[in-house]
């Protein structure tokens, strides 16, 4: 049977990995290619590279990092950040990305999901969404979580699935950076509405958080950044722990 996936996420700016806490106070961590190598050896099931560069120069550095990583790390690579057009898909796919994650780009132009799925296949299109509780519901936010996108999260997830997204990344703004566990309640609502794989993001602080996530049966994969980057939890020890507790993971 398919294993639960552990996915480290590398936010890259100007050629370096950074990790924001609640999207503020960004700290420099390390060289992305070096980190990708390290995570691959430690048993990461996939890697996500997030381009948080604004400048053209930074974008060039990013694709160079991607290309160098894809030449020596042979596990699935997902790329996100600044994906607004099919040309953006093209640019990162040519540099070795296997999947492309769209977020604000799809909110601003929902047809992007279907056009990309038709051109590159469903397996290539990941719909990433930043979700926040509001007035008893779940809303989608965009542009670094500052702007309410005017979408209901559950409807948006379903829309993504119906229009060719092969996978969902669901990031909880409420739990992101707080490190008290994934947003199980919200994830359960999303999980109940779609059949495509769901990747949970936001809130991992301890090994136990991943066990709770998988025991709750609300996600196929857990994504995290800082707990891995700062070596608080190693991927191999996390997988050992999950396996000892009855979760099927690749070892």
């Amino acid at each position: 049977m398919i294993g639960k996936r552990i996915i480290p996420c590398l936010d890259v700016r100007n050629g370096r990995v950074v990790k924001g806490v609640n999207f503020d106070g960004i700290r420099d961590v390390a060289d992305p290619v070096e980190m990708a190598r390290f995570y691959n050896r430690a048993g990461a099931d996939e890697l996500v590279f997030y381009d948080i560069t604004a400048s053209a120069e930074g974008r060039g550095l990013f694709t160079d990092i991607l290309r160098r990583t894809a030449r020596e790390v042979f596990i699935p690579l997902t790329v996100g950040g600044g994906i607004n057009t099919l040309d953006d898909f093209d640019r990162v796919l040519k540099c070795g990305a296997d999947k492309v994650s769209v977020n604000s780009g799809a909110v601003n132009d929902p047809s992007l999901i279907e056009r990309a799925a038709k051109k590159y296949g469903d397996q290539c299109v990941v719909l990433s969404m930043d979700v926040k509780r509001q007035n008893g519901g779940y809303r989608v936010f965009k542009n670094g979580n500052r702007v309410d996108a005017g979408l209901d999260a559950l409807e948006w997830a379903k829309y993504g699935e119906d229009h060719g997204a092969g996978e969902l990344v669901v990031n909880s703004i409420d739990t992101d950076g707080v490190r008290r566990g994934f947003d199980l309640e919200m994830l359960a609502e999303i999980e109940a509405r779609v059949r495509i794989p769901v990747i949970a993001s936001g809130g991992a602080g301890r090994k136990e958080d991943f066990l709770e996530l998988f025991r709750a049966g609300v996600a196929d994969a857990g994504l995290a950044a800082s707990i891995f980057h700062f070596r608080e939890v190693s991927i191999d020890s996390l997988k050992e722990y999950l396996q000892e507790n009855g979760v099927n993971v690749r070892r």
Partner: peptide, 9 residues
């Protein structure tokens, strides 16, 4: 069960 069959098996 999820479709696509995606991940490590």
């Amino acid at each position: 069960l999820k479709i696509p069959h995606m991940g490590w098996n």
